[in-house]
Amino acid sequence: MNALPEQGGSEDRPSGTSDSESGVEIPEWAPIEPLPSSEMVLAAFAGMVPVTATDILDPAGEFVECQRQHRLALAVLSQTGASAEQMKEAAAELVSARSDIEMLIMVIDESVADRLLQRRKDQLRVQPEIPRAGTASNVVVHTESVGMIAARMADLWERLVAKASDLDELPEAHQLCELCAGYDVFAAEIESGRRLPPGL
């Protein structure tokens, strides 16, 4: 009798790696997970460990710390009384945060592209006929990627958490709600094949 190989927990593999990168082979017959909802993305921002869509939610959860680092660095750079050493450290933090955010956007967008590619392969396996010319032109390409939208959501989330003590007026909360609604529509349109992220 063959025993299943033991799978390490999420702490055993580097952040941002999918199951396929960690050595777990996903069978071809396994259905492609849908894109995570905005609620799942917000839960990742809050520090909840995702049980599904980890290829997107794990890097999305890391956005919050990067956005906090970015905001704090900007605050130091805007101070008139900051020393040269503080300015230098803040500039380095700012560059590091921006670099990390761009890398996380790329990781998420590559995961989305992998999902769409696998879905196309699955559709061709079920329906092998060649698609007619011109059908791809009917699909609208969005101006922002899933990773870019998740980064903006994390920025609003982080600013909202930073201002949580001042409950008089939080425009970030309204902006985040609107962005979440827009993300959910975008994710549904990607799932239905009516819209594509840029670069695909």
Score class of each variant (00 low, 15 high):
175 Q>H: 07
65 E>N: 09
143 T>A: 15
185 V>C: 09
135 T>C: 03
82 A>V: 10
163 K>Y: 01
64 V>M: 11
63 F>Y: 06
98 R>P: 10
97 A>N: 06
169 E>R: 10
138 N>F: 12
169 E>D: 14
142 H>W: 08
75 A>F: 08
156 L>S: 02
176 L>R: 00
107 V>K: 04
101 I>Q: 03
191 E>I: 12
164 A>Y: 00
60 A>T: 12
143 T>M: 14
191 E>R: 07
161 V>W: 02
101 I>E: 02
191 E>C: 06
81 G>P: 00
78 S>L: 11
78 S>Q: 13
144 E>Q: 11
152 R>Q: 09
190 I>L: 15
123 Q>I: 09
76 V>W: 01
62 E>Y: 05
145 S>G: 08
83 S>Y: 03
189 E>S: 14
105 I>N: 00
123 Q>G: 03
79 Q>V: 01
63 F>H: 00
181 A>Q: 08
109 D>G: 07
166 D>V: 07
163 K>G: 03
75 A>V: 11
187 A>I: 07
136 A>F: 06
134 G>K: 10
192 S>A: 14
94 L>Q: 07
93 E>Q: 13
103 M>D: 12
154 A>T: 03
133 A>H: 05
121 K>I: 09
175 Q>W: 01
91 A>Y: 07
174 H>A: 05
170 L>Q: 14
64 V>E: 06
102 E>G: 07
170 L>H: 03
166 D>R: 09
100 D>Y: 06
154 A>R: 00
179 L>G: 01
110 E>P: 03
186 F>H: 05
89 E>I: 15
192 S>P: 09
173 A>Q: 10
147 G>M: 10
108 I>P: 01
173 A>Y: 05
79 Q>T: 04
116 L>W: 03
94 L>I: 01
144 E>D: 08
79 Q>H: 06
179 L>Q: 01
131 P>E: 14
96 S>E: 15
183 Y>C: 07
103 M>I: 07
61 G>Q: 13
62 E>R: 13
137 S>G: 04
76 V>P: 01
177 C>Q: 12
99 S>D: 12
172 E>F: 04
114 D>I: 04
167 L>S: 03
83 S>R: 06
126 V>C: 05
63 F>D: 00
118 Q>A: 13
138 N>T: 14
123 Q>F: 09
101 I>G: 00
152 R>P: 03
116 L>S: 06
108 I>Q: 02
189 E>W: 10
84 A>T: 15
185 V>M: 10
189 E>V: 08
150 A>C: 15
174 H>N: 03
70 H>Q: 12
187 A>E: 02
176 L>H: 00
61 G>I: 13
164 A>F: 05
97 A>F: 03
74 L>G: 14
90 A>C: 08
147 G>P: 09
82 A>D: 11
72 L>D: 13
71 R>D: 14
160 L>C: 04
191 E>N: 11
